[in-house]
Design a binder for these strands. Structure first.
Length: 275
DNA sequence: GTGCTTGTTGGCCA
DNA sequence: GTGGCCAACAAGCA
């Protein structure tokens, strides 16, 4: 499920449950795929008794910091979820990591296990955190940087390029379609063939969709984006794309569906045409 | 049973 | 060497 704004929502939910608390016990499914490459024994040993310090998101990645210079990295993959339950919450089949405080259980559940948990102890941030790309709402995400990236990935369809986390951290499948729909760019258009105006539109709409998704989803509880408002004179494509026969809310014409860049893609042929 | 799924990665190939 | 494509990972849902 999680893209940028949902990830922020999940982080806040765990941070709320952890605030001011110490971890009294850690329960793990040690062999679970989400722990691949991670020293689970060290994680469980280190976090037991540790006090929660702070947390942050970067794209789809989260980090929770604990006393003793401990860094817990969480990526939720396709089906991951972070929940807060009562202290005696019994770990279910897919609850691969549970941190118990005096009041709560912080539960990481992930049926498909495409997600990932990482652990690091040290004063400086681990590479898996410090090397993440700058946020799309930061100054480093400039039009020039985007243009250069599109040029280097010139032969790939723009839809596939928008999913590349090293340039567009946090953008996932539905956000990518939303951005292209707003920018009126056909998802199959080669990244290197975008005009200067299209690059500008892509940059603008990437930031706009990220900003609005954060505003409507991150705080309110992971709900779908709301309808029209003053900032966005267009409805969300998202709300129409999964209806049986989707209709472009702007033109009233049928939406099209295809696999592009290996992912199900939805666009509006009336708005988005190849040059 | 079939055919999907808001993600990432490594192996293969041009 | 570079870069794109796609199967694989695993479980649930319609």
């Amino acid at each position: 499920m999680p893209e940028l704004a949902e990830v922020e929502f999940f982080r806040r939910r765990w941070a709320g449950g952890l605030a001011g608390q110490a971890v009294q016990a850690v329960a793990v499914h040690a062999g679970a795929r989400i722990f691949r490459g991670t020293d689970v024994a060290a994680l469980a040993r280190g976090l037991t008794g540790a006090r929660f310090r702070s947390s942050a998101t970067s794209g789809k990645q989260m980090v929770f910091q604990f006393s003793g210079g401990q860094w817990l990295g969480v990526h939720l993959g396709m089906s991951g979820d972070l929940t807060v339950g009562p202290a005696d919450h019994p770990a279910g089949r897919h609850d691969h990591l549970v941190l118990r405080t005096r009041r709560h259980s912080l539960v990481l559940t992930d049926p498909r296990m495409f997600g990932r948990v990482q652990y690091w102890q040290g004063r400086a941030a681990p590479g898996w955190w410090s090397r993440l790309a700058p946020p799309v709402l930061s100054g480093e995400f400039s039009r020039a940087a985007v243009g250069e990236f599109l040029r280097r990935r010139g032969r790939a369809p723009i839809k596939a390029v928008l999913l590349m986390q090293e340039m567009f951290p946090g953008i996932g499948n539905w956000m990518a379609d939303e951005i292209l729909w707003r920018a009126r760019i056909h998802p199959r258009q080669k990244a290197g063939a975008l005009s200067a105006g299209q690059v500008r539109a892509l940059w603008t709409e990437t930031r706009r969709v990220a900003r609005l998704a954060l505003r409507t989803i991150a705080g309110t509880g992971g709900e779908l984006p709301g309808e029209l408002n003053a900032d966005i004179p267009l409805s969300w494509l998202f709300r129409h794309r999964w209806k049986g026969d989707g209709i472009d809310p702007q033109t009233g014409t049928p939406l099209a569906y295809a696999t592009i860049g290996g992912r199900t893609t939805c666009w509006s042929p009336a708005r988005q045409q190849l040059p």
